[in-house]
Each structure stands twice: as C-alpha cells, then as structure tokens.
C-alpha cells in the first residue's frame, strides 16, 4: 500500500470531518437563523468531502476499513487532523475566525490538489473546490462585517483572530509525507501555499480594519502536531460525543 497517500487522505478526511462536527454543534444554537443555516450547510459540504477522503484512505489501505470504521473506531492519537479545526467553537466571532483562516487555506490547497497526478485526489479536490470557494467568500464577508462593525464586535473579532492565529502555522508544515507526495506531483508542498494564503488573509483583515498578528506567532512548534497524532484536549471531548453510539452499540445502523 501507498503509506504516504494513505496518511495524506486521512489528514484531509479527519480535518474535514472534525471541522464538520464542530460546525454541526451550532445547529440549534446559531445567533440568527440565517447564520445557523449557513454553518449547517458548510458542515454538510465538509462531511461529504470527509466521506470521500476517508473512503479513499480505506481503499488505499486495503484492510477493509471503510469511512465509518475510520471515523468511529479510532482514538484521538490515531486522528490526523490539524489542531486548528478541533478547537472549541467559542463565540460566533471565534468560530468565524477559525473558519476564515481554514477556508482560505483549504481553497488554495484544493486548487493545487485538483491538478494532482493522482486522478482520485484530483476528482475529490475539484469537486470540493467549488464548495470551498463559496465557503471562503462567505467567511471573509463575515470577518469584514464583524471587524468593521461596532466597537464591541471589532474588539471581539480581533481577539478571536489572535486566538485562532497560533494554530494557523501548522497548515503550512511539511514533513516526510508531503515531501514524498510532492515529489510525485500528487500534492503541493504546503509551505508553497503560505504566500497566497497570507496575501488573501492580509487583504481581508485590512478591509475589516483589524490588525494581522505577526506571522512568526503562528509558527510556534508547541502549536503543531495534529497531523502526527498529537492533539489538544479539545479533540477527545469531540470524539467522545461523535463516536458514542458506535462505541456503546457496536455495529448499530439505521
């Protein structure tokens, strides 16, 4: 089996799955109905993408693990999602700061992955890219509205941005997996995404009258490790809820 591609498909699958679950926690708790509908729909798009990535991972592994087994029967140290997406929702500004930083990265990544030399990767990415472009534009819009809003929303948005910022650096981290796959033209080096990401993020942040935190503050090694299975406390609670039914009633189905 192709170990590197299996790992990478897990990273993409776990990252979209965990963020999808986080966003679904807003269902029934949104600040207004329209925002709740939007986050629920973004969550659904990400869940669909997660299913495709995890199915691909299971196919590559070839040991009979399907999307459900991979989602429900692994513990936190086996999860390969980025730390940013597992962080608690906080208030709406916190959620949108996390979403904006993520969507922007996701967009530039999928744009590259849709030109992958692996047909399966390219197909999933091209499908997701259309959805993610819409997510990214919407979350940028919210950052501007909240940043360039009232004094209170401005202050909260700035604090939210600084809170999410320290987890952004991991998105651009390269290791043996990405280096090997980049050599085969299957994925881009993640470091190469950083200039595009920073450029877009800076433009939106300025329009939102917010201040961009120093880039080096997003690069502290303590705030990385998710893709190697070293997670923050937040993931364990998330999995405890998401996996409860399959853990308590193994094999239960509709």
């Amino acid at each position: 089996m192709d170990d590197a591609l299996f790992e990478y498909a897990l990273r993409m699958g776990d990252t979209t799955l965990v963020l999808s679950h986080r966003l679904s926690e807003w269902t029934g708790h949104g600040p207004v109905l329209e925002e709740e509908l939007a986050l629920s729909n973004v969550s659904l798009d990400l869940l669909g993408q997660a299913r495709m990535w995890l199915t691909l991972a299971g196919d590559i592994e070839g040991r009979g693990r399907d999307e459900d087994k991979l989602a429900y029967l692994r513990d936190a140290p086996q999860y390969r999602n980025y730390l940013l997406v597992e962080q608690d929702n906080g208030h709406y500004g916190d959620t949108m700061a996390r979403q904006f930083l993520f969507d922007t990265w996701h967009y530039f990544l999928l744009e590259k992955l849709s030109a992958s030399t692996d047909e399966r990767v390219a197909a999933i990415a091209a499908k997701g890219l259309k959805e993610v472009a819409y997510h990214a534009r919407r979350s940028a819009d919210l950052i501007v509205r909240l940043g360039d809003g009232t004094d209170d929303s401005h202050a909260r948005m700035q604090a939210a941005l600084e809170g999410a910022w320290r987890f952004a650096g991991e998105l651009f981290h390269d290791d043996a997996v990405t280096r090997q796959l980049a050599g085969q033209g299957i994925v881009p080096l993640h470091a190469e995404l950083a200039p595009h990401w920073e450029n877009h993020v800076r433009g939106v942040i300025e329009e939102a009258t917010l201040s961009l935190p120093p880039v080096q503050e997003s690069r502290h090694p303590a705030y990385a490790g998710g893709i190697a299975g070293r997670h923050t406390e937040a993931l364990g609670y998330l999995l405890a809820e998401m996996q409860f039914l399959q853990r308590a009633y193994p094999g239960a189905s509709w």
Binding site: E34, L37, A38, S40, N41, V42, T104, Y107, F108, K130, A133, Y134, A136, R137, R138, A140, D141, H200
Partner: peptide, 27 residues
C-alpha cells in the same frame, strides 16, 4: 469561481420578474 469576494448575482424574482431583489442569506 475564485476566492475574491464580489457582488451578489442579480436574480430576477420568480414571482413578479423584478430585478430589484437582494440576497438575504448565502444558504
């Protein structure tokens, strides 16, 4: 396509055909 924000598309009202419509929610 693309990540750069732009104006919402002009959509004619399916009831009366007017172009004086506005986006309330992206979803």
């Amino acid at each position: 396509s693309g990540i750069v924000r732009r104006a919402d598309p002009d959509v004619p009202c399916p009831q009366c055909g007017s172009m004086r419509t506005r986006l309330i929610s992206a979803f």
